[in-house]
């Protein structure tokens, strides 16, 4: 129990009053992912907390993040994307439905430490519905160098705000994340005849909640836009 709470309890005892029960923690509001299958299984992304989306390359991490950005900007919320490796493709995101005029994009040019500072400044500035931190192409050894204290500081910073902090990576780095989603690729959908009229149609992904409670995987399909 925190020191302030103990002190208050002592005051109540001294006055002979019943000690009031601690205030129930307000249930966290959530931000829809924009994918009905995932929302049904996972229930959206919590606001005021860190969510981690991880998986190997081509596992649908970015598609899920872009879908989140599209849903949030459609809801007229301003979002920020801290792009550690400068890999965000605005044209692809706009085709998916991201309102680029409501998106602040920070290009960090491969510097993870800059991404950390930028995310810190954005959360401190406030007013965002979603702050994405894309470490998807950062090498795990570099991303693991981010200290646990930094992630805890982020958790504390984002807690009193309505923003959801979403971290995308190859592996799970954030032990204090409120929600962890592991992404997997199921199959690639092609159409046409190989060597003649082949066309990439879409990819089927699978998302599984690993924290707070492990869930059954939810499957969804991302189609090639346009």
């Amino acid at each position: 129990m925190p020191a302030a709470a103990l002190q208050n309890t002592g005051k109540f005892h001294a006055l002979g009053l019943p000690v009031p029960a601690p205030a129930a923690r307000k249930p966290a509001q959530s931000l829809p992912t924009g994918i009905p299958e995932v929302d049904r299984r996972i229930g959206g992304i919590p606001r005021g907390a860190i969510t981690e989306i991880y998986g190997p390359a081509s596992s649908g991490r970015t598609s899920l993040l872009i879908s989140l950005l599209a849903a949030a900007t459609r809801n007229q919320e301003t979002c920020a994307l801290v792009d550690a490796d400068d890999s965000f493709d605005p044209a692809a995101a706009a085709a998916v439905g991201v309102d680029l005029s409501r998106l602040i994009w920070i290009r960090c040019g491969g510097r993870v430490e800059h991404a950390l500072k930028a995310a810190d400044l954005l959360i401190e500035g406030g007013g965002f519905g979603l702050v994405g931190m894309d470490l998807g192409d950062a090498l795990p050894r570099e991303a693991r160098r981010i200290s646990l204290a930094s992630w805890f500081r982020f958790r504390l910073a984002v807690e009193p705000t309505p923003a959801a902090l979403v971290v995308v990576g190859r592996e799970s780095y954030v032990s204090c994340a409120a929600l962890k989603l592991e992404m997997r690729r199921r199959k690639v959908e092609w159409s046409g005849v190989p060597g003649c009229s082949r066309l990439l149609r879409g990819v089927h992904w699978e998302v599984e909640r690993r924290k707070p409670v492990r869930s059954a995987p939810a499957a969804f399909e991302a189609r090639v836009a346009g």
Partner: peptide
């Protein structure tokens, strides 16, 4: 726009 749409395939540029 519509509240929910089919997710599109995202692209990561080098």
């Amino acid at each position: 726009g519509p509240k929910e749409t089919n997710p599109g395939l995202a692209f990561r540029a080098f």
